[in-house]
Design a protein around this nucleic acid. Sequence first.
DNA 1: ACTTAGCACTTGAATAAAAAAAGTGCTAAG
DNA 2: CTTAGCACTTTTTTTATTCAAGTGCTAAGT
Lengths: 329, 329
Amino acid sequence: MLSERQNKILRLIVERYIKEPIPVGSKVISKAINCSSATVRNEMGELERLGLLEKTHTSSGRVPSEAGYRYYVDNLMELKKMNAEDMLKLQRVFKNQQLALSDVITKSLEVISDMMNYTTVVLGSKSHENLLKHLEVIPIDDTNMTVIIVTDKGHVEHKNIRLEDVSLEEVKKTVALINNLISGTPIDEVVSKLEYEVKPIIGNYVKQHEKLYNAFYHVFTDFTNQEVNIMGRHKMLEQPEFSSNIDKIKNVFNKLEDKEILKSIEEDDDNNIKVYIGNENNIDSDVTVIQTKYKNGNEEGTIAIIGPKRMEYDRVVGLLEYMKENIER
Amino acid sequence: MLSERQNKILRLIVERYIKEPIPVGSKVISKAINCSSATVRNEMGELERLGLLEKTHTSSGRVPSEAGYRYYVDNLMELKKMNAEDMLKLQRVFKNQQLALSDVITKSLEVISDMMNYTTVVLGSKSHENLLKHLEVIPIDDTNMTVIIVTDKGHVEHKNIRLEDVSLEEVKKTVALINNLISGTPIDEVVSKLEYEVKPIIGNYVKQHEKLYNAFYHVFTDFTNQEVNIMGRHKMLEQPEFSSNIDKIKNVFNKLEDKEILKSIEEDDDNNIKVYIGNENNIDSDVTVIQTKYKNGNEEGTIAIIGPKRMEYDRVVGLLEYMKENIER
DNA sequence: ACTTAGCACTTGAATAAAAAAAGTGCTAAG
DNA sequence: CTTAGCACTTTTTTTATTCAAGTGCTAAGT
């Protein structure tokens, strides 16, 4: 258990460091609380022994450790209410009644990315939670058509395919068949159902069944198992601790392109705002991910904000709370 | 007019510098052609006076200037045929008969981006060249639906919209009306046609005409005026002259996100492979853009490869030639 | 009229030494 | 328990020194 004064000092250090990434010395702190720098040094030493602070070298000022940030987030941070300007910018997006929910979310996360200089992410629900609701085909010309897949969660995707020497008639039949036989199936099981339930039957009804089967097989294999939307990909370049370290940047960029890694963002089961600091996340030991699930009707997903470990925790949590609230009603 | 020997020297310098970005001295060159380093120095001095070479400081080796690259591309470069490995990788993509053309293009440009470490871009044809061919609506639930827009060039886009208290009936009527009245219109004129030709009539047929009009108005306003696809966004980080210069990187990344800038890539009217070196392009004075138009049936667009000024011109031009050829048949 | 050996000269990069700045830990006194 | 004071560390900055690479020019050679 930390003393009142220790809490105060830790908090000052974290907040100062978040403002500007330079190690914090005892002098500055001593001015802020009412006691000598020597006293502060003693307390800092103790906080370091507890693993909450670190030095960059023997005689440097202190920097929050991962555990220090954790402690700050869990115990010291107080949520201030959103500033009027931030609020206004977001309200402008939320007020737009014509936009579909998913567009409202991406647009507002774009706004957040711009105002915070962090990267933001929306993840739709996973493929096993999306049931095939409807399949539709729109012919484009003799050989090309667009296949549209709609899931029960409102995830829509379209793909263009080529089908040579197949009549529209036949395609329509096939689509109807698929709609009848396997709508309601989780997206990631559609492919196997296609093989075991549609393939054996399709031959009886449709002439060019091989070609058609192959085409649809590919469409569903290619179907994105999860909608992922990244805003402000390059914002990390604005963060001083990254902009001086190309390898870090490369790593973060690569991780962001890697769908598998991004999926790990969604692994949460409960419903609160979660903060994953440094090694607590799968992206990079120098970033923090703050995320939360949302649910509106049967549309659901996760939104996340990715920034440096020294991100503005209070402000970001406030923004996410506001987002969640507004999405859910 | 350069002498034979000057051509030789310039070419050696450019090719050497492309291989490795370190200024080239007279000694290396003198070994490659049969004469003393002093002679080479004289020639280099002349080439510098002509603006084809530059020094990084008074006593450094030479580096090709922008004009130097230009001269190299125009006069010295000889197209070698593609190496077998590159060819194989691309053929694997082109052989896939099921893929729609646009997918073949993006996939193969992904492959190129990976093997060259350059960024690649596909640009579809512009909105004024795309005519609205077909509009279709798929209901998702009571208030949400997906609108699908197909253009005559095979560009397909879908958007989700919200429509409260409007019956599916009404929506279908509106869509039919729009299809009848304005299909065949260039996409960027659709909005005004909606206003002057559809709006006045729609009231007679459809009850909730205001809401519907607004919804479709937005759909078309939001319609991407040009399909843009970027592969290997971060490849610049692999190029030594960029990875040591964050500001350059930021600039290039920002330009790539800027649709207006990208459009300038397409400004060409003729049909050949074009090389825009440094200030000749709008992206950045330190990159080169190599691009070409393609056309297959009524699908057309531009593909471009963006790399450092010292990109492997011959190899890239070879790749683009191959791409173009394969796309067009 | 070219080519080239030779050499003085320039510049950047690498290394070393010295001085300045920031901050710590500890001791001893209040 | 607090704090003034000071020795000590470490980084950063500055200055100087040397080394390596490469140039331009001159004068001699073909």
